[in-house]
Design a protein around this nucleic acid. Structure first.
Lengths: 196, 196
DNA sequence: GAAAGTGGTAATCGGATGATTACAAACGCG
DNA sequence: CGCGTTTGTAATCATCCGATTACCACTTTC
């Protein structure tokens, strides 16, 4: 297989593993196993665990921005008016990203590493990149942008804590999830277990 | 010193260290050093790193609920009416918790460990405990409770990513922080650096 | 004032893990 | 074919870290 394709496979696997276990909790061996290659290979290909995590972060942000771009285009084509409709359209696409195993979780894990001297600045830059997109491209004001981000961080946290695991057995969890994601629940109910 | 007091000291140190580096990123030695004791001592006192983290999680939730209780009392004494005023009062007290080094961050770190077979269920239970408090004690409806939690998760994330580190140099970061925390910024500007 | 309990530490162990080295198999190409 | 380059792996290393053991100092109790 071409190295380029392997790289994409490994990045995808790394996104899932980092999302599940966090940066420190994930091992290069888990990632390698998930990608179907040997552990030394992933280390050599990316130059180290840290560099690999930064690439995962970059790729995640690119995907999010791309998803936002698609939503902007979709909204424009549908002829809707106003920033609010656009924000909701972007929110729906964001929720779709939840089904991309680990994508938003690895991002969230990065956000919690602000104290790291290398990851921290990258994570902040990524966060601000999204914020500026909402402000400048989408045209939201500061309040609306923060509301949007707050909802996004809430979703990420709900996924991170695996609240869906309690959907069946806990009425509060059910109420909360039904309220948050009335139409998107099936995205989270897909098998998120294991891949130990 | 009495073992009971040592325990409290260590839990406080552990909260800060876990908050900064995450569960896997934090080492028992860092915690011991921060508490001024030896590494074997903290391990023996709590029975292991995992058990210690669970105690940190419990203590954090107790503090949050206590802060909410205080806000409810304060709001009742001030004679204000309506759930909205109460929610804002609680929000202010929640923001005050941000100055408790690592308190909300260690909670957030726990929330990102939903995949962990031991920590995950505890984290979910804690999250739902807060949710039920908002619903049953404060009297918010499901939508208002979620809005409140969303804002809280947003604050936690902003602190986790150390957005204040960019306050001076990045106009977007400044705009965002000024919008989110118009009166509470000084809480975050206190020295959150190092304690490597 | 010994014996028993309490509050600690130094030394060390064993496993996990990121990284390195050395090597092998396939492929492109003159 | 022959040879270099690419794509990979097996084996191993070195370090970190959680846990264990063994021990020490002090206090309480009888």
């Amino acid at each position: 297989m071409r190295s380029e394709d392997r790289r994409a496979l490994i990045l995808e696997a790394a996104t899932a593993v980092f999302g599940e276990h966090g940066y420190h909790g994930a091992t290069t061996d888990q990632i390698a196993r998930a990608a179907g290659v040997s552990q030394p290979y992933v280390v050599r290909m990316f130059g180290g665990k840290e560099a690999m995590f930064l690439e995962v972060l970059d790729r995640t942000l690119q995907r999010i921005i791309a998803s936002f771009d698609a939503a902007v285009e979709e909204n424009r084509a549908s002829g809707a008016e106003g920033e609010e409709a656009l924000a909701h359209c972007i929110g729906r696409n964001y929720a779709d990203l939840l089904s991309d195993r680990g994508l938003l979780l690895s991002l969230m894990q990065a956000f919690m590493l602000g104290a790291d001297p290398v990851v921290g600045p990258h994570a902040r830059a990524g966060f601000l990149r999204v914020y500026r997109y909402l402000r400048e491209v989408v045209g939201l004001d500061a309040t609306a942008a923060n509301d949007f981000l707050a909802y996004g961080m809430f979703l990420n946290t709900i996924v991170g804590v695996r609240m869906v695991d309690d959907y069946e057995n806990d009425s509060s969890a059910r109420e909360m999830l039904d309220e948050i994601l009335p139409t998107k629940l099936e995205l989270l109910m897909t098998d998120r277990s294991s891949a130990s």
